[in-house]
């Protein structure tokens, strides 16, 4: 626990220093993307990693935040209001869709998330007040009230705060009763139910919090890009990216999503630098290969493997 807090503190200090020190827009953009993906990966990790219900439709919760932001701005309200509003809508969507589907096992749940996400996507694309397929372009109006900043560093700082909050919440989850319930359910749901754990309630709470985190990230994203449309927020491709980040780093671990986001961002950038526009697809090949290797050899991802190795070493030392 202390080690985790120190690690988080160190990350916050380093990133904060980078915000003040870096002038390069490209570097700040990378940093923002990295933090945002880490938050989305952790959000996914709550329900799919700790909860064991693998979601392939997580982008709809991200979309709740982004669309809440767009709607607030286009109706003359401050996007800060979109944080509670988007989070509330996302949590409600999670509860309404999770209530019937969370009881489904394995692939039934995963395919249900794809179906729900596709329905949400179809709804948004045909609903005039949600901008249909064209979406929203948000007017430029810098200021704290409009959550628009001339310096990219400010966005990075906000993303850093969100990331730190999400990591702290996850540390709390790992040590909380609910964290133990989730792990017990994942290990053996029948045994967990037999000792009186209410699976539906525990998972609904985890799902609602997971959706909330993704929605807040969505608000920040909308204010950063000032553009919200279905392909950039709620499409299946975004859901797949979120799951990818969660899986690569390691499911059900505190730092897995951050590591996954780092791998994702670094690879995407490296491929773009090496191959330019022609490199489309090569990054997918590499992620795909990583996921295949992890699934075949080390199903608990990069962080899971490290944790395992540490445990074994500690065990060996204790034995010696």
């Amino acid at each position: 626990m202390r080690a985790h807090l120190i690690a988080l503190g160190a990350i916050v200090v380093v990133v904060a220093a980078a915000v003040f020190g870096l002038r390069s827009a490209v570097a700040l953009d990378l940093l923002f993307t990295l933090l945002l993906y880490a938050v989305l990966g952790q959000s996914w990790n709550w329900i799919s990693g700790y909860g064991g219900n693998i979601s392939f439709g997580h982008a709809i919760f991200f979309g709740c935040g982004a669309y809440a932001s767009a709607l607030c701005v286009t109706h003359g309200l401050s996007p800060w209001l979109a944080i509670p509003a988007g989070a509330l809508v996302a949590a409600l969507l999670a509860i309404v869709t999770g209530f019937p589907t969370l009881a489904l096992r394995g692939h039934y749940f995963s395919i249900a998330t794809i179906a729900v996400a596709a329905l949400v996507d179809a709804f948004v694309r045909t609903t005039p007040w949600l901008g249909k397929a064209t979406g929203f372009e948000l007017p430029i109006a810098p200021g704290w009230a409009t959550m628009q900043f001339p310096q990219k560093g400010t966005y990075v700082a906000l993303a850093l705060i969100l990331f730190a909050a999400v990591q702290l919440a996850t540390m709390a989850l790992e040590r909380s009763r609910m964290g133990y319930y989730l792990r017990a359910l994942r290990a053996n749901h029948a045994a967990a139910a037999a000792v009186g754990i209410d699976e539906r309630r525990v998972k609904l709470v985890a799902f609602a919090w997971s959706a909330t985190m993704a929605a807040v990230a969505g608000v920040l994203y909308a204010q950063y890009t000032l553009f919200v449309d279905p392909p950039s927020t709620i499409a299946l491709a975004i859901s797949i990216d979120i799951a990818l980040i969660g899986v690569v780093g390691g499911i059900g671990t505190l730092w897995g999503p951050a590591v996954g986001a780092l791998v994702y961002v670094v690879l995407a950038k490296a491929v773009a630098l090496q191959l330019g526009g022609a490199g489309k697809g090569y990054d997918l090949v590499i992620y795909g290969a990583i996921i295949c290797l992890i699934a075949a050899l080390r199903p608990y991802g990069i962080v899971g493997t490290i944790v395992d190795a540490l445990r074994r070493r500690r065990g060996a030392e204790a034995a010696a």
Binding site: G279, L284, V285, Y287, G288, I290, I291, A295, A296
Partner: peptide, 22 residues
């Protein structure tokens, strides 16, 4: 573990999709 087949075939989806796009 049971999740391995979901992740593994998902990884294969991403890999083949990437190959085709590339």
């Amino acid at each position: 573990p049971p999740e391995a087949t979901v992740f593994g075939t998902f990884g294969m989806l991403v890999l083949l999709q990437g190959l085709a796009q590339a």
